[in-house]
Nucleic acid binder design. Structure first.
Length: 593
RNA sequence: GCGCCCGUAGCUCAGUUGGAUAGAGCGCUAGCCUCCGGAGCUAGAGGUCGUGAGUUCGAGUCUCGCCGGGCGCGCCA
């Protein structure tokens, strides 16, 4: 359970009871009341601002209000001490027994601990990656993939019905370029002659096998034919090949989407764009107009041109946006409106898109569109992921697509390898992607990725997990006849856990449910990685303290009860770390070999 | 010129959706191995939270104006 939500409920019902008994004025709104962990541990375990936000409407001084509330809360069994502090905070310090019960809870629930029903089964659609099917994924795509994937996992963990979705941008000019590039490789495959890849086509070697496969399938059928004949079939072939490539990359990264939607086949060809434009027209949200050139920059080839525009300004955008190109085809935006409407029609009133930061200018119009097509009932949140800089011992890795020195996501995963303390390369990549908030630039240093030091957050967390397992190996050796399993550990007498560092560690563990909720609702999966680091740090500290003060060791050979209690704590730490790592997509290790 | 994002210790970054005395890693200084794994731990120095106003009981967090950096700005996606 999230103990802070629990206490918030308890506090508001206390307030209601106090109002009913006349000790506080009735009819007060407790909406803004919070129950939170104070920053300073010295201020107690749970702090509420009730008196601060309700005193004024109650016509009381905050401290008087606080006194009444404090008296009521102080009589609770789980409250050790109540204090009124600062301008009127009511601070609760909880009894050790409350924390011991949290430990029992963790051992009961195991890695499910922290899961909740907060989302009430509401559908949420998370769209992420959505890389153009024109080549393998690069590291920047990888970041979006990880952020989206873990955000989806977080939302699922707190009770939302999450759908992970990939939108294939296979309808624009870029896939025509892909087709021409693949055609070139096809001709190469036919006559064996290497060709210079002209400017404007994709030079990557990854298209060579596509050309060969096309030859395999179609022989010389397209050789010497005009583009109008081969473009569509070659394009389809190449897109499929690229999606196979991307699916492989995603699989290597451990990312699985439940649904792939094709812009070309599922949106444009099904007339979905025409339909949504018609319905917007019927609501007078589409018109033919002429856009002003952007001020301050002088587009050299600017010509005023009448075009079909969507009134996005009515929904918060800065200018109205074009829906149609001059050749009559739809803009990417128009198709994207139809696609997001499709998601609304599939029941997703909450949509989250994960994009690269270079798409920042696109956010407002898309949110405007979602608002418009859903009649305001659906919302779109957009998470923008900043660039990833690949480094080699602090030096930027030089990359050039044309020179063929481009480092792909797959290269990175493969290079980080398998079998080390960190598990597979994908796990390392996934964790590192969370070591910065999504809107911050991220330095990805190969040297640091596998370094074995406190500076490497994943290493540090894995080391803590390994140590929890090590403690059990030690216990088995010292007390061979001791029966140790999770059920037993969950039922031992925890009273022996009285040291403030032990209680402190339980408090950190007990913060896990709230952290999950916060990370999920705010769309900030990096919080999981930072939390695990903090938890690992607290555990390492206690471990070392045991080395210095034998009385604090986990295994005390002549005191079985104490040993069992402490092993319960160690086990709970291991469970929460394992739970967090698996959520991120990292397999926790048993030992650091 | 406009919009969005960012600006926190020497460096790299957190900061729990507005809470109390702003934290961590690296680096620097000083300590801790007859060990339960020192791949770790403890302590210290280091800050006008870019800046100026505003909102309120309270602002690193919200609003506005500046300064600096990044991204974007009609038929690219």
């Amino acid at each position: 359970m999230n103990l802070y939500s629990y206490f918030r409920e308890e506090i508001t019902s206390s307030l209601a009871a106090l109002a009913a008994s006349g000790k506080l004025p009735s009819g007060l709104d407790s909406e803004r009341v919070t129950a939170e962990p104070p920053r300073e541990a010295a201020h107690g375990d749970v702090s509420t601002n009730a008196a601060l936000v309700m005193a004024k409407p109650a016509g009381m001084k905050p401290r008087d209000f606080a006194t009444v509330l404090a008296e009521a809360l102080g009589s609770r069994d789980d409250v050790l001490k109540v204090e009124i502090a600062g301008p009127g905070f009511v601070n609760l310090r909880l009894r050790p027994a409350f924390w011991h019960e949290r430990l029992a809870e963790i051992l009961r629930e195991g890695e499910r601990y922290g899961a909740s029903t907060l989302g009430r089964g509401l559908p949420v659609n998370v769209e992420y990656v959505s890389a153009n099917p024109t080549g393998p994924m690069h590291v920047g795509h990888g970041r979006g993939a990880v952020v989206g994937d873990i955000l989806a996992a977080l939302l699922a963990r707190i009770g939302y019905a999450v759908t992970r979705e990939y939108y294939i941008n296979d309808a624009g000019a870029q896939v025509d370029v892909l087709a021409r590039s693949a055609y070139l490789r096809y001709l190469e495959a036919l006559d064996g002659a290497k060709r210079e890849v002209p400017e404007g086509l994709y030079p990557g070697e990854y298209l060579v096998p596509v050309g060969q496969a096309l030859k395999q399938r179609d022989g010389a059928r397209w050789q010497g034919k005009p583009e109008s004949e081969w473009l569509a079939p070659v394009r389809e072939f190449a897109i499929n090949a690229m999606m196979d490539l991307i699916r492989d990359d995603l699989q290597a990264l451990g990312v699985r989407h439940a649904r792939f939607t094709s812009e070309r086949h599922d949106v444009v060809e099904k007339q979905r764009v025409q339909q949504v434009v018609d319905s917007l027209k019927a609501r007078d949200l589409v018109y033919t107009g002429v856009l002003e050139p952007p001020k301050g920059m002088k587009p050299d080839d600017w010509e005023p041109r009448p075009q079909m525009l969507f009134r996005s300004t009515q929904f918060g955008d800065d200018v109205d946006r074009p829906l149609q190109k001059s050749d009559g085809s739809w803009t990417y935006f128009a198709a994207d409106i139809a696609y997001h409407l499709d998601k609304v029609e599939r029941g997703f009133n909450r949509q989250i898109d994960v994009w690269g930061a270079d798409h920042g200018g696109y956010v407002k119009r898309m949110q405007a569109a979602v608002k418009a097509v859903s009649g305001g009932k659906a919302t779109l949140e957009v998470k923008l992921c900043q660039l990833v800089n690949l480094l080699e011992r602090g030096e930027p890795v030089k990359m050039s697509k044309r020179a063929g020195t481009f480092v792909t996501l797959r290269d990175v995963i493969d290079r980080l390898g398998e079998g080390s303390w960190a598990g597979a390369g994908a796990g390392i990549v996934r964790f590192i992607m969370l070591t910065r908030k999504h809107d911050q630039h991220l330095d990805f240093d190969f040297a640091k990725a596998t370094e074995q030091s406190k500076d490497n957050q994943l290493f540090y967390v894995q080391y803590a997990h390994a140590r929890t397992r090590s403690a059990f190996r030690q216990a088995k050796e010292a007390l061979p006849d001791l029966e140790i399993d999770d059920v037993r550990l969950g039922r031992v007498n925890f009273a022996a856990l009285a040291h403030e560092d032990e209680i402190g560690l339980i408090k950190t563990l007990a913060g896990w449910p709230r952290l999950l909720e916060g990370a999920a609702e705010s769309g900030e999966p990096h919080r999981v990685a930072f939390y695990l680091y903090e938890l690992a740090s607290a555990f390492h500290a206690l471990w070392t303290r045991g080395k210095e003060e034998p009385a604090l060791r986990f295994v005390v050979a002549d005191n079985r009860e104490l040993t069992l209690a402490r092993l319960s704590l160690v086990r709970a730490v291991g469970m929460v770390i394992a739970s967090g790592l698996r959520l991120i997509g990292v397999e926790p290790v048993e030992e650091m070999r």
